[in-house]
Design a protein around this nucleic acid. Structure first.
Lengths: 243, 243
DNA sequence: ACCTGAACACCGTTCAAGT
DNA sequence: ACCTGAACACCGTTCAAGT
């Protein structure tokens, strides 16, 4: 069907009916696996079974499980193309918000990735594509609102933004998208929640919040997070300008 | 030495020379263990060895490993006594900052706790003491700066604050306090870092940030985080007042 | 060169039996 | 009532041997 441009025949592309493994293909398989199952289920043996090879075969392409997760994380990072940012005074807020929405959606697509990297002490954001994205985001902050932020504050604002998105996905979206299995799904929508049922007479604010149906909708909570982030950065920008 | 007030003798306090196990003592031992070792090292077998019993003995007090971690998390929460907050217009910012510093220090003392609870899908903040703390923090936000925040915004501000602290400890402090073992300690202080060495010609902002010695000091980064958080919440308060 | 199968040292958890 | 010891099914990883 396709016209292959006579590739270098260094390495067979197939073996025993399946495509030959590579470091990249093994990492991609791990990333796909994380989109379907929880991080704890990603074992060398399970991945090997899915690829139709013995567990030992994976060790020809990755050093160990930690290395496997590192490859998956790199592919994960390289897959994201950020929306364009506009530092103009009347545009930077909305484009930054759109940027954050898109980044949140990307992390949310592979819920286990960040937690897994965290628990394995893997340093993320090393992939060239991600480094370029980070550099562009810092550049954006050095120009926002006309005056822009000084270099150091722009760097901090960039890291702050990324950390907030990751934190939101891990601590808000993930428990919401994959609630613990030991409680009934019906129990989730009860108001007030069972742990607030008794002895909550001295917890008036929590009780009121628990009765508010909107309180736990992640999308609405995320808007508040963006409000605080954007306004907080704007205030910092004003403060630095007045110095 | 101490005068014991004739306790009810329902249960022996010692057995074979060591104190009798209880659900609380096992949980406390797990929490202590997490202060000394990484979360992955906390195994039923390792904890049993440290307590001088067989692994099976632990199952008389906790249902399984997940339950053990839940108990440890509850003890962890009950151990924190928050500093006092003052919502007065000229005081709320500084007292909120002090509050956040204290909470950060508490989480930092048991680095593995949050990550472990996260990876085991354990819902935190169920302990009565912590619920009271959360309620008080919401109450604080309903009164800040004279006008205060509406109930819903106060609740969101409370959750935002806690999430930011936890996110900071997990994503900033933990990698800094316990760097991955596969790179030399010397490599950490190099400027620019090795992953920025080549092909970084189109990464001017990252390069500049990497040369700035202050960029990676967690305490200074934390001040920026608090700047954004406090100013962001203040801006939200003003916005709501003007509506 | 790349794979398989067997093995080792770990893990959580359970069973049957001790005291 | 609470414990031990042995066992089971898992895991990451390695060794020796196949093709």
């Amino acid at each position: 069907m396709t016209t292959d441009p006579a590739p270098a025949r260094r390495r067979p592309t197939h073996r025993k009916g399946r495509a030959t493994l590579t470091r990249a293909s093994v990492g991609q398989a791990a990333l796909d696996f994380l989109g379907r199952h929880g991080p704890a289920e990603l074992t060398m043996r399970a991945l090997a079974t899915e690829l139709g090879v013995s567990p030992r075969a994976l060790y020809n392409y990755v050093e160990d499980r930690r290395d496997l997760i590192t490859v998956a994380a790199e592919i994960f990072q390289s897959e994201w193309r950020p929306p364009t940012l506009d530092p103009a005074p009347d545009r930077w807020r909305e484009t930054l918000r759109a940027y954050c929405h898109d980044l949140r959606a990307h992390y949310r697509r592979h819920p286990g990735m960040t937690t897994l990297a965290l628990s394995e002490n893997i340093t993320m954001a090393r992939h060239p594509v991600m480094l370029r994205n980070v550099d562009a985001l810092i550049g954006f902050f050095t120009e926002i609102g006309g005056t822009g932020l000084p270099p150091r504050e722009a760097y901090l604002a960039c890291m702050e933004t990324i950390r907030q998105i990751v934190g939101f996905v891990e601590f808000q979206d993930r428990p919401h998208d994959r609630p613990p299995e030991d409680l009934d799904p019906a129990e989730l929508r009860q108001t007030p929640p069972p742990w607030l049922r008794e002895g909550a007479d001295d917890l008036p604010h929590l009780r009121r919040a628990a009765e508010d149906q909107h309180s736990e909708l992640p999308d609405e909570v995320f808007e508040f997070t963006l409000d605080v982030l954007v306004d907080g950065i704007a205030a910092t920008a004003v403060k630095r300008r007045d110095l």
